[in-house]
Amino acid sequence: MTPKKKARQAIKAKIRDIIRHGGSTPAVKLIAKLNAAVAGWVNYFRVGNASRAFSEVRDYLEMKVRTLLTRRKRRQKRSVGRRRWSNEYLYGVLGLYWDWKTRPLSGAEEFRVKVAVARQDP
């Protein structure tokens, strides 16, 4: 199971809406809302082969947060701000969601053992 393009577009739209409707909400509160949305999406697709989709959404999320921070500082927008807003700042100081690992479904190992035993017994 891997997230389809429609699912990736839906979470990106949700990220975009949260940031767009954030207004003058402090960055930490905005990050908390983003974390809640992204954590739910990641936990739903975590059991499958979703590492590529996770990296795509994570890159999008980082870009949107950096753009927001740059816009709030009212500086010239030469780039997305990777130098200015490093990963250490995003994840360490602001507390952006960072648990993007896939995990096997609970009980999957027991199922594999049962299947292997069943195949051996004719």
Rank of each mutant, 00 (worst) to 15 (best):
residue 40 G to W: 11
residue 7 A to K: 08
residue 68 L to E: 03
residue 48 G to P: 06
residue 68 L to S: 05
residue 75 R to N: 14
residue 48 G to K: 05
residue 1 M to W: 11
residue 29 K to A: 09
residue 41 W to G: 01
residue 58 R to A: 01
residue 50 A to D: 02
residue 113 V to C: 11
residue 115 V to R: 07
residue 115 V to F: 08
residue 118 A to K: 12
residue 111 F to N: 12
residue 36 A to C: 07
residue 48 G to Y: 08
residue 12 K to E: 05
residue 25 T to G: 06
residue 19 I to Q: 03
residue 20 R to W: 01
residue 108 A to L: 10
residue 82 R to H: 15
residue 108 A to T: 08
residue 45 F to A: 03
residue 63 M to C: 06
residue 20 R to I: 05
residue 51 S to W: 10
residue 65 V to G: 03
residue 29 K to S: 09
residue 1 M to L: 11
residue 15 I to S: 02
residue 1 M to Y: 14
residue 52 R to H: 12
residue 64 K to M: 03
residue 103 R to N: 11
residue 27 A to E: 15
residue 25 T to W: 07
residue 20 R to A: 10
residue 1 M to S: 13
residue 53 A to K: 01
residue 1 M to R: 14
residue 102 T to P: 02
residue 59 D to Q: 12
residue 102 T to D: 08
residue 93 V to C: 11
residue 37 A to K: 04
residue 31 I to A: 06
residue 51 S to E: 11
residue 26 P to R: 07
residue 83 R to S: 07
residue 47 V to L: 13
residue 29 K to Q: 08
residue 116 A to V: 12
residue 26 P to D: 05
residue 113 V to N: 15
residue 4 K to W: 10
residue 112 R to C: 13
residue 70 T to R: 14
residue 21 H to Q: 09
residue 60 Y to H: 02
residue 13 A to V: 08
residue 37 A to I: 03
residue 13 A to W: 14
residue 19 I to D: 05
residue 73 K to P: 03
residue 47 V to W: 12
residue 28 V to Y: 15
residue 17 D to F: 10
residue 38 V to W: 00
residue 61 L to I: 01
residue 62 E to H: 02
residue 21 H to F: 09
residue 2 T to I: 07
residue 69 L to W: 05
